[in-house]
């Protein structure tokens, strides 16, 4: 096989890696939008907090002298999910619930305020410098000829694929099979009617925020280990990218968020691989503009029907 093919394959692998984490974050945007019709602009910060939580768990356990990889990973995921979910729940409770029922612009502004607050809260508490994450999973496979370009698939990338896949499967099962998932879907369609039929819609909204935050935490743990550094500002860009992914796939649609995340990730990787990595953000936000202009409902979104 030719060198070009290996090069292309490498870009696709990188793209899917990064895209699947965008998808995890994008699900948080899309689920919240689906149910209460608001963009939770603090969601990127929730992801950042997930990364920090993972760092503290790993650092803490390392100090205790625990070096079993499996144990470290499980603890990092479990505790980060718990802490981040608590943040997600509290953000909704403090910043959005009191504003519900009013103008749609008000919670949006509150979300931006929450985002600024969380970013600066972490910056003041932890400092604004980069923190190096301990690299737990190193090494990988190399495919291709030894004398020319060859494809590397790191073990970390495999972990990202597997964990993302598991998370998505659990989420899909929850949404389609469980009683609470059914209530979530009912609320997404007609929250007023769901309320009248005796569903506690406040609880459903809280659960939506918790699920979104939990998935963002998973992405936070994965990406912080993949990149190896974290700082208080990483939530901003990741949040924007995930938002782009959600809009691209059709905001409100969970499969759309996954598809949008993958498309965005692959587009970025190909741009970085064939043109210049400096242009990858230009291309992804250009894509956002294009989608908003020509297909505002996204790939899998349904056209907005004016409710009477």
């Amino acid at each position: 096989m030719s060198e070009q093919f290996y090069y292309f394959l490498q870009q696709i692998l990188n793209g899917v890696t990064i895209g699947s984490t965008y998808a995890l974050i994008a699900i948080g945007y899309t689920m919240v939008y689906g149910i209460i019709g608001m963009i939770n602009f603090a969601h990127g910060e929730v992801y950042m907090i997930g990364s920090y939580a993972a760092f503290f768990v790993l650092a803490g356990l390392a100090m205790l002298g625990i070096d079993s990889l499996v144990l470290l990973l499980i603890a990092a995921f479990a505790l980060s999910i718990m802490i981040t979910s608590a943040y997600g729940w509290s953000i909704e409770r403090v910043a959005y619930r009191p504003l519900r029922g009013g103008n749609r612009l008000i919670p949006l502004i509150s979300a931006i305020g929450m985002s600024i607050f969380l970013q600066n809260f972490v910056r003041l508490a932890q400092g604004s410098r980069d923190i190096a994450m301990p690299s737990l999973i190193t090494g990988g496979w190399t495919i291709g000829p030894a004398d020319a370009f060859n494809v590397t698939l790191s073990y970390m990338q495999v972990v990202i694929f597997v964990v993302t896949f598991i998370s998505m499967t659990v989420l899909t099962a929850f949404i389609s099979k469980s009683k609470m998932g059914r209530a979530c879907r009912a609320c997404a369609e007609d929250i007023g009617m769901a309320n009248l039929l005796g569903i506690n819609t406040n609880k459903v909204i809280s659960i939506t925020f918790v699920i979104g935050a939990a998935l963002a935490a998973v992405a936070g743990v994965l990406l912080s280990m993949y990149y190896g550094v974290i700082n208080p500002y990483l939530g901003f860009m990741a949040g924007l990218k995930a938002f782009t992914a959600a809009v691209l796939g059709g905001i409100g649609s969970i499969p759309g968020a996954v598809l949008g995340g993958l498309i965005l990730g692959i587009t970025e990787a190909i741009t970085a691989g064939y043109f210049s990595s400096e242009y990858k953000d230009v291309v992804s936000f250009g894509l956002l503009c294009f989608v908003l202009l020509f297909m505002p409902t996204g790939i899998l979104g349904k056209p907005e029907v004016e409710k009477v």
């Binding site: 009683k179 209530a183 769901a194 039929l197 005796g198 569903i199 506690n200």
Partner: peptide, 11 residues
């Protein structure tokens, strides 16, 4: 599912 979701509180 429309009928099940209305039993949410009773299930």
């Amino acid at each position: 599912e429309n009928l099940l979701v209305a039993q949410h509180r009773h299930l």
